[in-house]
Amino acid sequence: MVTTDEKGPLTAKKKSVIIRSCDGDEFLVSESAAVLSTSLKKILEEKEDRLIHLSDIDNKTLAMVIAYLSTHADDGLSDDLKRSFDQEFVSGKEFDVLKYLVLATDTLQVTCLCYTVAKKMADIMKNKLVEWVRREFDIQNDYTPEAEAEIRRLDAWAWDDRQLEDD
């Protein structure tokens, strides 16, 4: 083993963990990155295993979360660079991708990423039609047609002069 770490290979090996997604893909992550997730930190404190299996996060979502954690764990990067990484990280991502990402941040308890993703989702949801939200989030409209018409009429303040989008 070639390493410059003075503490030797045994200690060095402990510095990485392997995280397995629900579909079986495995990711090598430095421990300093993993512990930015409160959930992973707890698991690592409780057991010696270097392998963590996440049964409800798929490989694509997990890869994104790990990219985020690794960047934020890198002491060599300035805060400005990390902020611009955050912006780039969520830009252009499909709404569907963000939904699973925000769920993963909750499972892994990565609060700062949760805020970043939630903000992006809110930005996308702005100026969208009610129907768009129902469709994207699979929400059943439980208002009766007359009740819905009534709310729309009464909420006129919120509906006037707004260009709403359906895509």
Partner: peptide, 18 residues
């Protein structure tokens, strides 16, 4: 987190959903 980012107008829109 999502709802906190919405303006009053947008919160009213969301309230229409269900």
């Amino acid at each position: 987190c999502i709802l906190e980012k919405l303006s009053p107008l947008e919160l009213c829109s969301m309230a229409m959903v269900c």
